[in-house]
């Protein structure tokens, strides 16, 4: 990365476009409030003062899909909720990512029955799966940081 190349003392740095864009995207990802069930409480704990998610740029949890980048699906998705989930995902502007938080969002969890969608990746494409029932706030932060790493590794051909 050519950040170290400073042209004289004019204070100009050079870098690759995709590095800058990815850095900007990963450091200020706003999550959409999509807490459904028990994992939502751990997500709130992650946002609260002890395990602060604002350190990672997720200062605000936007309830509106138009203003958010990442949808953290926290909780079990029932058959009645699945169309709502898809509609909200469609309303989010690109670039958008999805973190499936918890076992129920990743694979259906404890509940393998008529009422629960077995994994939210049957409805929306998922980028990061976080395991746990519910995952500890540290696990969710690990998932968020994995997503940041994934975003930083994105290539220009993917989104240009």
């Amino acid at each position: 990365m050519g950040v170290e190349q400073k042209l004289g003392e004019m204070g100009i740095v050079t870098a690759r476009l995709e590095d800058l864009v990815n850095w900007g995207r990963s450091n200020a990802m706003w999550p959409m409030l999509f807490g459904l069930a028990c994992c939502a409480i751990e997500m709130m704990s992650t946002q609260a003062a002890h395990y602060d998610a604002s350190r990672f740029g997720m200062e605000l949890m936007r309830p509106s899909p138009r203003q958010s980048d990442v949808m953290i699906v926290a909780g079990r998705v029932s058959r009645k909720m699945a169309p709502v989930l898809r509609r909200l995902y469609d309303q989010m502007p690109a670039p958008k990512w999805v973190i499936a938080m918890g076992d129920c969002a990743s694979c259906g969890g404890v509940f393998n029955n008529y009422a629960i969608v077995q994994g939210v990746d049957e409805v929306v494409p998922v980028d990061v799966y976080v395991a746990g029932c519910p995952p500890r706030p540290e696990a969710l932060l690990d998932g968020i940081m994995s997503l940041h790493e994934k975003v930083r590794g994105e290539k220009l051909q993917d989104w240009a």
């Binding site: 694979c107 259906g108 393998n112 029955n113 008529y114 009422a115 077995q118 994994g119």
Partner: peptide, 9 residues
Amino acid sequence: YPLGYEQVQ
């Protein structure tokens, strides 16, 4: 009424 058990991946 069946439980609706789905195949695990």
